[in-house]
Design a binder for these strands. Sequence first.
DNA 1: ATTGTATTTGCAACCGTGTTGCAATAGCAA
DNA 2: TTGCTATTGCAACACGGTTGCAAATACAAT
Lengths: 146, 146
Amino acid sequence: MKETQDISRLLRERGARVTPARLRVLALLRGAERGLSHHDVEKALDDGTPVDRVTLYRVLDWLVEQGLAHKVADEQRVFRFSAASTDGQPHQAHAHFVCDDCGKVFCLEDTPRAAPRLPAGFASTQVEFEVHGHCAACNVPVEAHR
Amino acid sequence: MKETQDISRLLRERGARVTPARLRVLALLRGAERGLSHHDVEKALDDGTPVDRVTLYRVLDWLVEQGLAHKVADEQRVFRFSAASTDGQPHQAHAHFVCDDCGKVFCLEDTPRAAPRLPAGFASTQVEFEVHGHCAACNVPVEAHR
DNA sequence: ATTGTATTTGCAACCGTGTTGCAATAGCAA
DNA sequence: TTGCTATTGCAACACGGTTGCAAATACAAT
C-alpha cells in the first residue's frame, strides 16, 4: 500500500523505528476527517491487534512531538489528535461544531473570521468558535428532542 | 456587611436557600481578580469552616447554572470560575474573553453574530465564542511575544 | 419557639483521562 | 544471527470531577 510506504518514510526520516502502532495510528489520523480522541483511536484500532492504552498515549504524544500530529483540547477537556498537514502550515484557527447528542466534534472550514472588538489594551492570541447543535446523523427531522 | 446582604439577596431572588457555602464562594469569586479553580477556592476557604470538596463542586456549578458565575477551562484543562457581572440579564449567548495570564473572564458585549455555514443536515442550537489572549492589566506593551 | 419538609451538605466510593516505573519485546544495524 | 536500545505492555498511580445516599439545615408554616 502506497500510504504505508509514505508513512514509513516519514517515520524513518526522523530517525525513529517504524512500528505497527505508529504506522496504524498515523494512517488512522490521516484518514480521519475530524480530530480523534485517545478513546476514538483505541476503538478504531480495536479490530486487528489491540494497542495498549499507554502505548497509544505515547505514540500520540510522540507524533505531536515530531510535528506529525496536532493535539487540541476539546470542550470536554479531552485531547483530540489530528494529522498535521505535511505541507507545513500549522493548524489554522477555525470553528468547531459540537453535536450535543453524540458529542462528536467537527471542524467547520469556512468560518467568517470576524473577531469581536476588544476593549482597549486587550490582545487576542486565539479565537475559539464553537457551534452547538445536532449533527446530520443525530438530527432527526420529525422530532428532535434529546 | 453590605456585600453579604447583597449576595444574600441575589441568591434569594433565585428562590434558593442562602447557605454559608454559597455566600462564601460567591463573595470569594467576586473579590477575586482572576478565575479561580476548584482547588483555589478550596484553599481560600480553608481557614474558617472547611467546605467539602463535593459541595464546592456543586455550589460552583450551581452558581454557573444561575448565571452568577462563568466556567471556563484553562490551558491545563482545569475549570476556572469567576463571578458574573450582576447587572441582571440571564447569561445570553455572547462572547467571552479569557485572559491566559490571569485567568479572568470578561464578557464581550458587541459580538458579531455571524454564524458559519453548516454542512447539510446540521442544526445549531447555540453558539459559543471564546477569545483567548491577554487582558489590559496583563498585556505589557514592551514584549508581547507568544 | 417548634415542627415539618424539601433543599443542601458531607461522606465514601467511583469514573475517565492521562502519567510513571520497570521489565519484557522487537526493530534494525552489524 | 546476534546484540543493542528504542519501544511496548503491564500494573499502579495521579488528579479533576461525579454519583448515590443518609444526615443536617434553611426556611415556611404553625
